[in-house]
């Protein structure tokens, strides 16, 4: 090791060491305000009311809680797939645009992000209720005979959540699509590839990092979604976060709420590990 004052013996300052130093403040912040409380939540789930896995036995031993967890995963999956289907063509259009057109399209993508999730969820309530816009429209077009009861219901939850999550799918897609080198597409063209092959064999594979980032963001966020399912979902579609809030806040059953929260966290982590394996570490979330 270097002696004090011996300048030559000091390890040289590198960008790498600088980066590591920059990680200290956020790392400390997360340690104190995130990991420590999280650990306490996890600890509570096995310590109270008595030491053991009784709370977990309650989670997995009864039909309704397992069903809620399953519904949560299923809903997050549906929302992710719908987002991807809607976002891909839109992101393609934005990625190819330039100038004013690009700015305009970006505004359309970003404006929903600037509006509160609560307000947007209430907006969907107005659309879906019996005396709402959608029912008025269906009736006046003669598509339905009577007013449909869509609220609370899974359709409303899916639509509301897709609306809210869409920008999180579009933005990574745009980023990765704009990074695609267009000379590669031209080369394919010159070599005689028809449009669909240029897309399927050149553009699509090159856009996959964006797809995988978007899918991860939307799916993980959807798993813990609270406001929209709380407002639009009925008892038939209860999501885990809504159930946890009910146990923690209304029943003050914190040990059980902790067990539910820990279970959701473990499921999310497990799914993420599977996802990393499937994308072979190519996810841009990991910087590659």
């Amino acid at each position: 090791m270097a002696r004090p004052g011996d300048a030559a013996g000091r390890r040289p300052w590198t960008l790498h060491r600088g980066n590591a130093l920059l990680l200290v403040p956020p790392g400390l912040f997360l340690l104190v305000f995130f990991f420590w409380p999280l650990l306490r939540v996890m600890a509570r789930s096995v310590i109270e009311p008595e030491f053991g896995f009784e709370n977990y036995a309650r989670v997995f031993g009864s039909g309704p809680y397992v069903r809620v967890l399953w519904q949560t995963i299923e809903t997050a999956g549906i929302v992710t797939v719908l987002c991807l289907i809607l976002a891909y063509p839109l992101a393609y259009a934005v990625a190819r645009a330039e100038g004013t057109r690009l700015k305009l399209l970006m505004i359309f993508v970003l404006v929903p992000l600037w509006t509160s999730v609560v307000i947007r969820s209430y907006g969907w309530m107005i659309v879906f209720q019996r005396q709402g816009v959608l029912n008025d429209l269906l009736l006046s077009l003669g598509l339905t005979e009577t007013r449909l009861t869509l609220l609370p219901g899974s359709l409303a939850v899916h639509v509301g959540m897709v609306h809210i999550m869409l920008p999180f799918m579009i933005l990574p897609l745009i980023a990765s699509m704009r990074g695609i080198d267009h000379s590669l597409l031209r080369a394919a063209d010159v070599l005689g590839a028809p449009p669909h092959r240029r897309f399927l064999e050149v553009f699509l594979p090159l856009s996959l990092p964006g797809v995988s980032a978007g899918v991860a963001l939307v799916f993980m966020t959807s798993l813990g979604f609270f406001i929209t399912p709380a407002l639009l979902g009925g008892p038939q579609l209860m999501m885990a976060a809504v159930l946890i809030e009910e146990k923690a806040n209304v029943e003050l059953d914190w040990p059980f709420a902790s067990a539910l929260a820990t279970t959701l966290l473990l499921i999310t982590t497990a799914l993420y590990l599977v996802y990393l394996r499937l994308t072979r570490g190519a996810s841009p979330l990991l910087g590659r």
Binding site: G63, P64, P235, Q236, E251, D253
Partner: peptide, 15 residues
């Protein structure tokens, strides 16, 4: 008895 009634109700309503 809230816990027991609550569990029975959740089970019933989501079922």
């Amino acid at each position: 008895n809230g816990e027991r009634a609550e569990a029975a109700f959740s089970n019933w309503i989501t079922g």
